[in-house]
């Protein structure tokens, strides 16, 4: 690898990360609008036309707020926890193929890489909960660590079916293997488990127990303020974006789209983004529809339903693959 290649990669990283951050800001706006309309409200309307500048206003506000640090907290860990979270999420972006032949790193272990980083991301929540030295934060952190570990297993097992069908863990190869039909149709059970586990992984409703506001104030980030809170916020929404991208690539055919007539001229990345935003809309739809789970129900669902179901799915997929 020479210097030009390195600079070129750095430029790609810079562009992709910045584009993602803009998307993340507007995913928040999208959520507020969608939830607003589902609850017969208008959502943000004041800043700019139909509130379009709201994310920028929010960002500026967070940036200039006072940074409060609890006096009894463990400072180095308190500082580093939100950074771990955001770095883990942004690093997973490296293996996502945006269109044919474009991903920052085309790894053979693409799926495993994303799973590894999502497990590193769990540290940010646990450490934030512990370092804040507050009961609410600590309970939120403990809940989250148990939840993330449990659902990571189910998520990994549900993706094994996809890897078996594609014969590879490389995300580009997985998209190419879906040229005949989306894996959604071949792996419906795995897809269902993946969607649920992704919601639990990113701490989204109805599995948002680590930050259940009615019992834990705000869970693990109760003691955080200003931009440190902003980092958690960005990590959560970027995590949703990455999980939607992974789901799109593994089950919805990635960047592929109709290639007849006028559709053939549409850039492939547009199809990918449309599918990702479809998945994100689904997240919001679920949030607006379902109430929060109870904690023991959540753990029972993960261990007693999803993991056995995912294992059975692997066996069935294997048998069918041998049959053919």
């Amino acid at each position: 690898m020479n210097v030009t290649d390195m600079l070129w990669t750095l430029l790609k990283v810079f562009i992709v990360v910045n584009v993602l951050m803009i998307h993340v800001a507007y995913v928040v706006y999208f959520e507020r609008k969608v939830i607003g309309h589902m609850q017969a409200r208008l959502g943000p309307m004041r800043v700019g036309w139909h509130g379009l500048l709201q994310p920028i206003a929010d960002g500026i506000k967070l940036f200039f707020k006072e940074d409060i640090i609890p006096s009894q907290s463990d400072r180095p860990i308190f500082y580093i926890a939100p950074i771990i979270g955001l770095v883990a999420v942004l690093s997973s972006l490296a293996v996502i193929p945006l269109w044919e032949g474009f991903s920052i790193a085309n790894l053979n272990i693409g799926i495993l890489y994303i799973l590894a980083l999502s497990s590193v991301g769990a540290y940010s929540i646990i450490l934030a909960g512990w370092a804040s030295n507050s009961k609410y934060s600590f309970l939120g952190g403990l809940r989250s660590s148990a939840q993330v570990i449990s659902y990571e297993i189910a998520m990994g097992l549900s993706l094994v079916g996809v890897m078996m069908l594609a014969g590879s863990a490389n995300l580009t190869d997985i998209v190419k293997a879906q040229s005949e039909g989306w894996f959604l149709w071949y792996q419906p059970v795995a897809c269902l488990i993946f969607v649920m586990s992704a919601m639990a992984e990113t701490n989204r409703a109805p599995f948002d127990l680590p930050e259940a506001e009615s019992e834990l104030v705000a869970g693990y980030f109760t003691e955080y303020s200003s931009m440190r809170f902003g980092l958690f916020f960005m990590a959560e929404y970027a995590g949703m974006f990455i999980m939607s991208a992974l789901g799109t690539i593994c089950f919805l055919g990635g960047w592929s789209g109709p290639d007849f007539g006028i559709f053939a001229h549409v850039p492939k990345v547009v199809w990918l983004l449309l599918k990702i935003y479809g998945c994100i809309f689904f997240y919001f739809w679920i949030r607006a529809t379902l109430p929060r789970y109870r904690y023991d129900q959540l753990m029972a669902l993960g261990w007693k339903v999803f993991i056995p179901l995912a294992l059975a799915n692997i066996v069935v997929t294997g048998v069918i693959k041998l049959w053919k």
Binding site: L115, A116, S119, Y123, I126, S145, I149
Partner: peptide, 15 residues
């Protein structure tokens, strides 16, 4: 190594 040791075992230690 990351998924098992860092993601599962060490989290349990921390727990």
């Amino acid at each position: 190594q990351i998924i098992i040791y860092a993601g599962a075992i060490l989290v349990l230690f921390l727990f």
